[in-house]
Design a protein around this nucleic acid. Structure first.
Length: 481
RNA sequence: CAGGGCAUGGUGUAGCUUGGUAUCACGCUUGCUUCGGGAGCAAGAGAUCAUGGGUUCAAAUCCCAUUGCUCUGACCA
């Protein structure tokens, strides 16, 4: 039955040109539109809905873990940004700056936020007085602007949507825990919501966030063998707090400086979902993020009035259960609809026509593996659909997990490293001597970077194959987006 | 930021060499017939040809500049 699946002619096949395939999906599936300002895109309803679903999941997780949402201004006065040297140096080159307001030259330049550490810090200094105020755990959903040279929808834009968490803690231990816990929340997001595994680990000093003591990241591997940094969490120590004069009195009436974290994920996750799951027929969306989870397609509805009636009943039942269902009763032909919703990645399709009605059955077809099932109309459809969506989630995750597992390759020699990196075979898992020199060398020779030091540091050698020096860490190297 | 390609109704395009305001298809609207893997017929609506300047009686077409998109590479989430 599934060999009748017709190839979608609107989309460039992945093997032909992966980058073009990606761009085609973004446009043809109506996820986004370009605008006349370079690097700034329109998030169209279908694309934005995916973000809303990710946001909903995370927002609940954040609140469960004791965080509150706030909103900071989008402009940062220059003097604030200048307070933390490393931070400024990291971000100033890619900032947009407002110099005119109401036709008048401004006394002080205003930077459009590239991230809001400085604003949070400036606010924290005003609201933190006592140890009783701690911890402070804030998050904000907003957009940030970074003046990028090359842009790609969702993966790198001059403006993107994200969330940034900013927290203050009494102790170093508690702050370090926060950074790690939030990383785990992101990991869970991948598994439960986006249906693919992240590689969790620590960033090398070279790859660390400007101003952070530790940066942790979730790295995702794309089908073209390149890595995508999908999110980061940072432990700041008390560096920012000292620069921004954030302090409080402890129970001994002594001034103390709090320890700080920040963490964020962005609309880049949409790009990851597109690439990880998509195929030549278009998007394949995980049930939890899909704007439409189930599409019902009535067939020959005007031949038998019961067809539409039955479809509507099913729609209502599913909808009542909170399932995002769409009944498409437009006068497009079924074939057109099949192709359309496959391209758009709707996880599950239900078909029902007069013949089915006679046999008292309906068909359910999954998007990710095209598995088709006929089920009796007598059965509890809601229960079946819920189960099916779960199976789809699990199936998609497993498929992605297998891909990742088979693309982490232990390398013992520089030859092997070169082979993995230059042929985009995935992560090169290497024993690294821990030096910046080796990192730079790998970057120079193979255009690859240290993605992370995985938490599982199971050593498999003593010598760094590049420097021939004593190896210190297990490290994943890869070309990255 | 460097190198290649592209820019014409919503989408994909013809026309450009050899100047005379625009082709075809899809989509859209209306009606009828259709509907089990991208339906058919009929009638319609829709473009100051990316932007700015120049040459010319006349520019989608020739010249210059700018902008955006895209691919490949360097930089950065």
């Amino acid at each position: 039955m599934e060999n009748s699946i017709k190839k979608n002619s609107q989309i460039t096949p992945r093997e032909e040109n992966f980058a073009q395939w990606y761009t085609d999906i973004c446009l043809k599936c109506e996820l986004m539109s370009y605008t006349s300002t370079k690097g700034f895109i329109i998030y169209r309803p279908y694309g934005f809905a995916i973000w809303e679903n990710i946001k909903k999941y995370l927002d609940e997780e954040f609140k469960k873990t004791g965080h509150q949402n706030v909103y900071m201004p989008c402009l940062i006065p220059e003097h604030l940004l200048l307070k933390e040297k490393e931070h400024v140096e990291g971000f100033a080159p890619e900032c947009a700056v407002v110099t005119i307001g109401g036709k008048k030259e401004l006394e002080e330049k205003l930077y459009v936020r590239p991230t809001s550490e400085t604003l949070f810090c400036d606010h924290f200094k005003d609201i933190l007085h006592s140890y009783k105020d701690l911890p402070i755990k804030y998050n904000q959903w907003c957009s940030v602007v970074r003046w990028e040279k090359t842009t790609k929808p969702f993966l790198r834009g001059s403006e993107f949507l994200w969330q940034e968490g900013h927290t203050l803690h009494r102790t170093e231990v508690e702050a370090r825990e926060e950074a790690l816990n939030m990383l785990k929340v992101y990991g869970k997001l991948g598994k439960e919501c986006l249906c693919f595994p992240f590689s969790l680990g620590k960033k090398t000093d070279k790859e660390k966030f400007a101003g952070a003591l530790e940066t942790y990241s979730i790295e995702a591997l794309m089908p073209d063998g390149q890595a995508l940094q999908a999110g980061t969490t940072h432990y700041f120590g008390d560096g920012f707090a000292k620069h921004y004069d954030i302090k409080y009195l402890d129970e001994n009436n002594t001034l103390q400086v709090p320890f700080q974290t920040s963490w964020g994920v962005s609309t880049r996750l949409i790009g990851a979902v597109i690439m990880v799951h998509g195929d030549d027929n278009g998007l394949v969306l995980p049930p939890l993020v899909a704007p439409t989870q189930v599409v019902i397609i009535p067939i020959r509805a005007n031949q038998d009035k019961e067809v539409l009636k039955t479809c509507k009943k099913i729609e209502q039942k599913l909808s009542k259960k909170g399932i995002r269902v769409l009944l498409d009763n437009s006068d497009k032909t079924p074939g057109f609809k099949f192709n359309q919703y496959e391209m758009k990645g709707v996880p599950l399709r239900i078909e029902l026509g007069p013949k089915d009605l006679q046999n008292k059955v309906l068909s359910m077809i999954r998007r990710f593996d095209y598995l088709k099932k006929q089920v009796s109309l007598e059965e509890d459809i809601v229960k079946l659909v819920v189960k099916e969506l779960e199976e789809i989630s699990n199936g998609m995750y497993k498929k992605a997990e297998q891909f990742l597992d088979s693309h982490i390759i232990e390398v013992h020699t520089e030859e092997e490293l070169k082979d993995v990196l230059t042929n985009n075979k995935g992560y090169a898992k290497m024993m690294w001597d821990g030096t910046r020199e080796t990192e730079d060398l790998i970057k120079e020779r193979y255009q690859a970077t240290a993605r992370c030091l995985p938490f599982n540091q199971m050593k498999f050698g003593d010598i760094d194959p590049v420097s021939k020096k004593k190896a210190k860490y297990v490290c994943l190297f890869c070309r990255a987006y």
